[in-house]
């Protein structure tokens, strides 16, 4: 009797787990945590009658593992640009011909046909931004638009630096400062990176990718690696916090909407992408998350504070640097550098 009950439970559980498969009129969206504007979803549901089911993840690695294992049954995923080639290489995405979609022309020319998806056969941009650093200009009056003040800080900032706690982002930034290519496989150049970061360490107060705003606003650190969207929130609370656009290059990232190969509702996925390409919808997402959507026509629909935010308008002529998916050898070198910094 007990056994039969247990079996019934197991069957129900399996049925629940398998629910995404075969359901109609639904859209299974798999996105980063806290990265989907609720109003946007509601509007899409009202317009189309499609029910959206949202699930979240917190790293590209998780997304990759989930898709590789064949689990999920998702219709839309949001990989970062450097993970798009990996997903393609693993054959995990399906072609959607985004360039033929209505509204594609709204996307700013700068973000069309990117290196990771020439011709936009698989993806359209969702949100994009940069990784740089925020400086308290009340404490340091000099030019902030150089990585020099981060890696070789002036006296005012020594011991008051906050860095991310992730090897790839920190090392990519150091490589950019030194003028070397990212995902570097050249051990001589990586040695220079190590020397730079080891020399920087005494000036670093904390390596942590969380609680950045808190540390900047409380004055615990005077300069901190940061994302442009987060920097807006910090400036809201402390106006002397400014976001840097380093002349050596601005590390840029793009998160993209894509459709997995085994999506059960690809048509609904495409409807959602077309929906998102409409300027007012892209703006709604930007107003929520605080990042640019790459949609040139969306500006008109942005909130006033977003429209004027310097963090959202990369200066004309700034050198953009895109990270890519690194080779095993490059990652091994990164790991080695990181271990030596933190040993």
């Amino acid at each position: 009797m007990k056994h039969r009950k247990l079996l019934a439970f197991a069957v129900t559980a399996a049925a629940l787990a398998a629910a995404p498969a075969g359901a109609e009129g639904k859209l299974y969206l798999y996105n980063w945590t806290d990265y989907t504007a609720p109003g946007l979803i509601e509007k899409f549901e009202k317009e189309t009658g499609v029910e959206v089911v949202l699930d979240t993840y917190d790293s590209n690695e998780t997304l990759l593992a989930k898709l590789k294992s064949g689990g999920g049954g998702y219709d839309i995923v949001v990989p970062s640009h450097n993970f798009v080639p990996i997903l393609l290489e693993e054959g995990l995405l399906q072609e959607i011909g985004a360039d033929k979609m209505p509204g594609f022309s709204n996307i700013s020319k700068a973000w069309r046909s990117p290196p990771w998806d020439p011709g936009n056969r698989y993806t359209v941009p969702w949100q994009l931004g940069s990784t740089s650093f925020t400086v308290d200009t009340g404490a340091y009056a000099g030019d902030i638009n150089t990585y020099k003040i981060l890696f070789e800080p002036p006296a005012e900032l020594q011991g008051q630096i906050g860095m991310f706690n992730s090897p790839d982002e920190v090392i990519s930034m150091a490589l950019t400062y030194l003028g070397f290519p990212l995902c570097n496989e050249n051990s001589a150049q990586m040695k220079e990176v190590r020397d730079l970061l080891v020399a920087q360490k005494p000036h670093v107060k904390v390596y942590n990718s969380d609680g950045i705003k808190d540390r900047l606003v409380s004055g615990e650190v005077l300069a901190h690696m940061n994302w442009n969207g987060y920097s807006i929130r910090a400036r809201d609370e402390k106006p002397s916090l400014h976001y840097a656009y380093p002349k050596e290059g601005v590390i840029t990232w793009v998160d993209n909407l894509a459709v997995p190969k085994d999506a059960k509702n690809p048509e609904n996925a495409k409807r959602f992408i077309a929906f998102f390409l409409r300027p007012e919808n892209a703006a709604a997402q930007s107003n929520f998350a605080g990042y640019d959507s790459g949609n040139a026509e969306a500006a008109a629909h942005l909130d006033a504070d977003k429209k004027s935010a310097p963090e959202l308008s990369t200066p004309a002529g700034a050198k953009l640097v895109f990270s890519s998916s690194c080779s095993q050898q490059a990652i091994a070198l990164q790991d080695k550098v990181w271990t030596e910094i933190k040993k």
Binding site: E61, S166, V206, I331, K343
Partner: peptide, 25 residues
């Protein structure tokens, strides 16, 4: 170690966690 130690030194826990994420090993 990350929160109170400022992540300045690697501990076994962080090392292992790193291998399964960004170090992909």
């Amino acid at each position: 170690p990350d929160l109170l130690g400022g992540g300045r030194k690697l501990m076994i826990g962080s090392l292992i966690q790193l291998q399964f994420s960004s170090s992909r090993n």
